[in-house]
Every structure is written in C-alpha cells, then in structure tokens.
Design a protein around this nucleic acid. Sequence first.
DNA 1: GTCATATTATGACACGTGTCATGGAAGGAG
DNA 2: CTCCTTCCATGACACGTGTCATAATATGAC
Lengths: 193, 193
Amino acid sequence: MSGARERMVYSAAQLVRARGVTATGVRDVVAHADAPRGSFQHYFPGGKDQLVGEALLWSGDFAARWAAEYPATTRRPTPAGLFAHLARQWKNEFTRRGFERGCPVLAGSADLAGGDSPVTEQLRAALDHWEHAVTDELVRMDVPRRRARRLATLMISTLEGAIMTARIRRTVAPLTTVVTELAPLLDSRARDR
Amino acid sequence: MSGARERMVYSAAQLVRARGVTATGVRDVVAHADAPRGSFQHYFPGGKDQLVGEALLWSGDFAARWAAEYPATTRRPTPAGLFAHLARQWKNEFTRRGFERGCPVLAGSADLAGGDSPVTEQLRAALDHWEHAVTDELVRMDVPRRRARRLATLMISTLEGAIMTARIRRTVAPLTTVVTELAPLLDSRARDR
DNA sequence: GTCATATTATGACACGTGTCATGGAAGGAG
DNA sequence: CTCCTTCCATGACACGTGTCATAATATGAC
C-alpha cells in the first residue's frame, strides 16, 4: 500500500471538481498530494489520462457508498428521503467549505464527454456505478426495478443540475428547492408501474 | 455591424460547450470563426475573459428566446409541455449532430464557477436570464409567480443534469425519461401554492 | 486630395503543459 | 555482500497558451 498513490488520486479528484479536468495539471496534483514528483510517472505510466480516470472511478465509488449508507440513517426509508440524503451531503459541502468544489462527474462530463478521450469510458463507469447504487436502494424500498432505474436517472440528473445551479448562484437554495419539489413525486406509490 | 465579431462569439460558444472553457483556445476560436487573427485583439480588448463572457451571455439569450417561443408551438400550453419543449431541442441536437456539444452554461459552471474569475458574473447572468424566461412562461400559464420560480429551478436543474447524463451515456434516453417522469408533477394544479 | 479612425497582419514574449530520459537511493531476497 | 525491484529526483524537450507591441492596410469623413 503506497500512500502517495492514493493521495494523488484523491487530490486529482479534488482539483478536477474545483477547476475542471483541463485546468488541472499533473504538477498541481503532485503538489496538492505532497507526493514526490517522480512518483507520478511511476504509479501512472498511463499519464494524466490514467490519473483522472482513476479519480473519476474513485468519485463514483464514493457516491455509491454514500447512497448505500442511507438506510442506516433513518428508521423508515423512502425514495424522497434517499434523495434528501444525497442532497444533504452537498448542502453540507457548500455551507462548510464554500462553493469551490463541485461534482467530479459533472466536471468530467463538461470537459471530455464530447470527444473520444480514453477517459470517457471510466466517466461512464463512474456514473453507472453511482446510478446503480441508487437504483438498488430504491429496489430495497420495494420500488419495482424498472421504475427504480427511471427514478434513479431522475434523481441524479436533478441533483447534478441543482449542484450546478447552486455553485453558479453561490447559494444552496436550489438544492432545497428540488428536494421539496420532487418529494411528493418520489413518494407517490400510486405511480408504481 | 462587424460579422467577424459575432462569429467569434458564436464560435466561442460552440467550442466551449464541446470541450470546456479551459480547453478552448483563442486561436481555435479565431480559426473556427474564419476571422482574422488580429481582429480578436481589436474587438476583445478584455482578452479571453471578455470573449467567453459574451459567449455565455449569448447562450443565455438563446436559451431564453427558445423558451419564449414555446407558446407559439402549441394550442394549449402547459408546464409539462414547456419542459418537453426545452428537452426536445436537446434531443434534436443529439440525434442530429451527435453528443459532441453540450450546454455552455454547464461547461462554464464546471470550469470556472469554483474560482473568482471575472466571467462568473456573466455566467450567473446567463443562467438568470434563462431561468427568468422560463418563469415568465409559467406565469403566463397562470402558475403563481412564487411557485413558477421554484418550478423553473427544478426544470432547468433536471434538464441540465439530463443533458450531462445523456452525453456521458451517448443516448437521449435520460432526456425522455425525465420528461415523462416530471410531467405529472409539473401539471398537477393541486400543488399551486 | 488629407486625415483620422477602424480593422487586420505579423512576430514575439514569458509561461505552463504533458511527457520523457536518465540516474540515483531504498530495501528486501538470495 | 550482491542483485533486483520498487520508488523517487532532476532536468529537459517540444508544444500550446494568452497577451502584447508594432506596423501595415482599409474605410470613410471632410
């Protein structure tokens, strides 16, 4: 286990979600991780692509884990509660650490979803992992799988958009707005189909 | 009226929404616009910041105009119809021109919403202009202004997130999903408050 | 015509980028 | 000890970046 390697991946994720992929230089990452400069070349022979690829996968894992932790936080889990749980983390992030850092997946999407960079696949994998975790949580609440997938798409899309809006406006209001607006729709059992 | 200047702003918007702000170089924009290189310095003494700032404002205007054109496309306007109208343009974009280009506002958010670039204000202005136009359309359908603002936030956030998801997955499915899922909520008059 | 203004041309500067080559230290296995 | 692998140090290369300085040309007013 090499601490330097992990720290680089983590730092890459942090810098990417703050300034974007292109604006994040390898030298910045190395410095941010307090890692020796020569180690980057050693641990990431694939260069920057490999680094940001792993950073995106790490972000996907993190988001998935966060979603999976929801049931332990409440006595009666509901879809709307899960969505609020996802949004809560971002409200905390923004109120405590400011609006500097956004979502790595969104940053990756903006910077390299249009081209055919080798990282696009890992970007897709990160999003899939996350959405899959959300879907599983919904299924655990007896939402039919097919509909759970649709709700997961809706939740993640809305959340990402709200993160974008919140960062531009520098207020968490959009997050609370979408949470309360979406709640009745998410919990309406009448629309299980 | 100088055609070169307008073309540069337009080209900047196109390149930004495809590769992001940082990855878009002024030389690229000049070439894409078939503009003389010396003209950039002449028309944009503020440098790249001024260029992408105007590109973002242009994008906001475009989105606002598109929203305002909705009533002319239908006989009985509804909130859900407006949302479908907004999403339809992106489905057309993606199916006809591929997933290369996303939303300039989202790209601007990812790349420079975290810092204190002088462009952040124009980014905010672009989003405000767009959301204001959507709000006005909702008000025109007799949605109370306060709730119209909340619905506009929800619609734009969800749409942007769906655009992100669609581009990563390279399919328009997320767009159709959020449109059909959000429809009943948007048109439920019971929740006018 | 003259003259001022608007537009374009050209070349360079200082800097940051990702990547590579090369060599040295550290540490465990035999 | 030697040997080998893992890890780190250092310097450089070729290239692209935004910006600027300077001058040439067009355009139109008078």
